[in-house]
Every structure is written in C-alpha cells, then in structure tokens.
Nucleic acid binder design. Structure first.
Lengths: 248, 248
DNA sequence: CGACTTCTTGACTATTTTCAAGATGCGTGG
DNA sequence: CCACGCATCTTGAAAATAGTCAAGAAGTCG
C-alpha cells in the first residue's frame, strides 16, 4: 500500500486554479486568510484510496487537480460508483463524523483539505461558504439524478456514449480542447471503473466501446486516448436531448 | 384534467405537522411570521401533475401531506423517477427559474408553497433557512446515491424488496405502525410508478411481487395493502447491510 | 352491476452477464 | 534495448435476467 503524502504546496489561495469554482468561490480576502489557516494539501497517486467508507474523517476537502471517485460496495462485492470528483468538487460532509463512501484517486490527485472543526465553525459565522456549498450540493444532486436516469433506463451503448460525452464536455470546458465538432481526450478511468460507474460489467464496457469504434463514433489510440470526430453524433448515441442536459 | 386548487388552510405554522422537519425547522418565531406572509397552500389529487419539467416555477414548496414523485422522461418516452417526495420534503430550487423535473402527486397531496422571490431574499438575510436547506439537500444527495446503487447493481427482486423496505420504514418512522418485526402499510405507488422508480418494467415488478408473496416475505390484501411478517427477512432480500442504510 | 383501469401470468425474445481464453500494453530488470 | 511478467483489455460462447407482446383476471369507481 502506498502512503499518504502531505505536501507543502504553493499554498496561496489567490493563485489557486480552482479559486473561482470551489467551495471558497465567494469568500472575501479576510475569509480566505481564515481558510488558509485551517488548510493543508495532500497528494495521492492514481489508484490510491483517499478514505474508506465508515472511516473517521477529520477534514473536508476540495479537489485541486486530478480525478477522484466516490463509490459504494455491497457485502458480496458488487460496487457502484456514485460520483466522479473533478477539480473544484467538494469532498466530505460538514456535521458528519465518518465517510459515507469510499473515495479513491482515479488519477494522480491533489486535494486542498480543511480541518473539519474550524471549517464547521466558519460555516456558522460566515454565510459565504454555506451558500456556495448549497449551490454546489444542489448541482451534485442534479448530476446524481441525471445519473439515475442513465442507470435505470439507458442501454449499455447509451451509457458508454453518455460517459464519453460527459468526460469530453468536461475537458472542453477546462479549455483543454477547442469546442468544435472534433474532440480529443484521455479516459481517466479503467474499463472496470467505467463499468462500476455505469452499472455494467467490464466486458460489456469493452464490447460497447469496440462497437462505437466500429461504427465510427469514436476512434482510439491505445486504450485511453479517444478521438470523437463528431460530438453531435456521440450525443445522438447517448440518447440525451440535444442540449446534452445543460441546466440553466 | 383536474384543476389546481388553492386552499385556505389552517395556516398557522405553529400547528404545522411538518414544522420541525421541513425547511423552516430552524426558524425563530419572527422568521416564521415572515414566512407566513409569503406562503399559501395548494392541494392536488392523486395522479395530478404539479409541474412539468421546463415550466416556469414561481414558487418553492414543502410537502405537507401525501406523496409526490420527481421524474425525468427521455424523448422516446422512457421514464425514470428520480425522487420520492414525502411530508416535509422540499420542492424547487432557489435561483432556478424553471422546473428541472416533472412533479406529480402520487397520492392526494398538500403543499405549502412560498413565493420564490421573497423566499430567495429571505435566504440571503436569514441563515436558518439556507442552513436547513443545505442539510436537507445533503440528505437527498445521500438518498440519490443509495438509489444509484440500487439502479446500477441490484437485481429485480432486490429492487422490489428495497422499495418495500423504504416505504415500510418511512411509515414506521411516522408512527403509523409499531416498529416490531411485523409491519403493515399501503403502497402509495402503482406498479407502473414502482417500475419507473426501480428502472424496471411493470411486468417485472408484478412478477417479483408475486415471487416475494409466494416465498412468504410479504403478503397482500388487494393490490396495495402489504403485510411484512418479518422485516429483517425483507431487508435480507433487499441486499442491504443489516443497518438498512441508516446514516449517522 | 358493468366498464375501465390496473394488475397478473404466460410464452418468447433481447440484452447483458458469466465464464473462459487469449491479446495488448506497460513497467521493470537483465 | 529488449524480454519477461503482470495487469488490463478484448472477444467468444453459453447462460441468466429482464423485457416485449399478448391475453385474461382482479379490483375500482361510477
């Protein structure tokens, strides 16, 4: 098992890449400096577990870079991913002592952690944090519900296309690719992780990716590097309405 | 189509049955009286639509009595329920102009509606509402994630057992039945609504209910009235860990 | 009591899973 | 630099689960 690594980072909130999107987005300068006093960074390697469900959790955190997954496991080993945590996403629940889900680093990961006690106190005294967290939680709830539609009603092919579209759109919104019809990105997940997210087996994931490739919806170099020649065609396969689930 | 019905209700917040659990739970007397100024009650009959996805929504609301459903529909008609709204649950999203989901009355329903504009203003000036709403939203997010596990990984039989367990537990917590091994309740949903909630067809729902009946896990009088002789046996069928997903 | 909706059950079909074998790619060490 | 070993991925064949189509039963409401 690899070890946790507490990092001394370029720790200026002012220079933080997720400053404007994370839970601290609405904070004023003085609030930020209070946050700086309770924060520390942690890095994890791809594959490392951040925390196990049920473990005591004495911090909350924002994802700074990389991708983490939230997942639940049944006694017999069946696993379902219940969230994909991207930069600026929030981890942990104020007021709860232990983790409700397994959190795993899907890629190399950096998190900005806040000691829980002072963070909770600050939530009471300053409204900006709680307001922003409410906004973010409502957004997550919408995502979770969109995912419920996928899990409950979409076919395997639609599930794969939907996941690819989400990842593609996210990369595009981070400015890593131009928002034309052609999109290129790397999958941050293994086939098994995709299966756990989509409620499928890894074999079905593999087959459907092959099928989408055969049909020219995507092309692959290696196993992770994906090219989508026509994003609209991908959305068509995903079965979403044309706006792709954008909520005003 | 039945019509909307605006009701003059026994409108005292002090006597409200959901006073201690709803979004107003933390409000002081003076805050309650501000809420009274912006509130009105509405009743709906079982089957009636409260609001359609995409419709403009100039209120937010709490469910006072009855059961409502939140659902999403794909272009080709596939439908997935994404939430079950019980007394004290909150409907609507502050800061959003239109409904993101279809809201339907599953049973006769009474809602306590707040005009959206003043409610949003009050959220900024008084922290109690936003704090409580954050708590409730985090709880809903947990429920949604529990449902994702069900939709993605459970078998049809486990899905049915899980739904029955949830309804049974809820009725018990409302004090309608004693919390012994034996539990009796009425299903608030049709087979089709159950199917939409569970990501199944109504035929599969029907078959699995018959199977649970044949195996003695439940018994039925009529189609809606259910007796669970041994609640632990039902939980076993649901595939949950023994605590039944209770979160501290 | 009768019409209509809701529900049940049967037979067949489709999709996804399971089990199994082999291919590909990646990192490490010779 | 190449080869080996391990993890990841692909593909095939058979099996299981849930879906579809269809008919009829039960319950409900007027």
């Amino acid at each position: 098992m690899p070890m946790l690594d507490t990092v001394s980072f370029a720790a200026e909130c002012g220079a933080c890449p997720i400053r404007h999107r994370a839970v601290c987005a609405r904070c004023e300068e003085d609030e930020l400096s209070r946050l700086e006093d309770m924060k520390y960074y942690r890095s994890y390697q791809a594959g490392q577990t951040v925390i196990w469900s049920g473990d005591r959790m004495d911090f909350v955190a924002s994802v700074v870079s990389g991708v983490a997954t939230l997942s639940q496991t049944m006694e017999d080993g069946r696993r379902q991913m219940v969230g994909l945590l991207l930069p600026s996403d929030f981890v942990g629940r104020p007021g709860r002592a232990s983790a409700a889900y397994d959190v795993t680093a899907a890629t190399d990961l950096v998190m900005c952690c806040f000691r829980k006690k002072p963070f909770e106190e600050m939530m009471i005294t300053t409204p900006h944090i709680g307001q922003r967290l409410l906004e973010m939680t409502l957004d997550e709830l919408d995502s979770a519900r969109e995912w419920m539609l996928l899990l409950g009603r979409k076919t395997a092919r639609e599930k794969i296309a939907s996941l690819l579209a989400i990842i593609a759109r996210r990369d595009a919104s981070l400015g890593l690719t131009r928002p034309s019809g052609r999109i290129v990105f790397d999958l941050p997940l293994t086939r098994e992780e995709m299966a756990d997210y989509l409620g499928l087996t890894l074999e079905t994931v593999s087959r459907q990716i092959s099928a989408l490739r055969k049909d020219g919806i995507i092309s692959l170099e290696g196993k992770r590097h994906v090219t989508v020649p026509d994003f609209d065609a991908l959305l068509e396969e995903a079965g979403d309405d044309s706006d792709g689930g954008m909520l005003s």
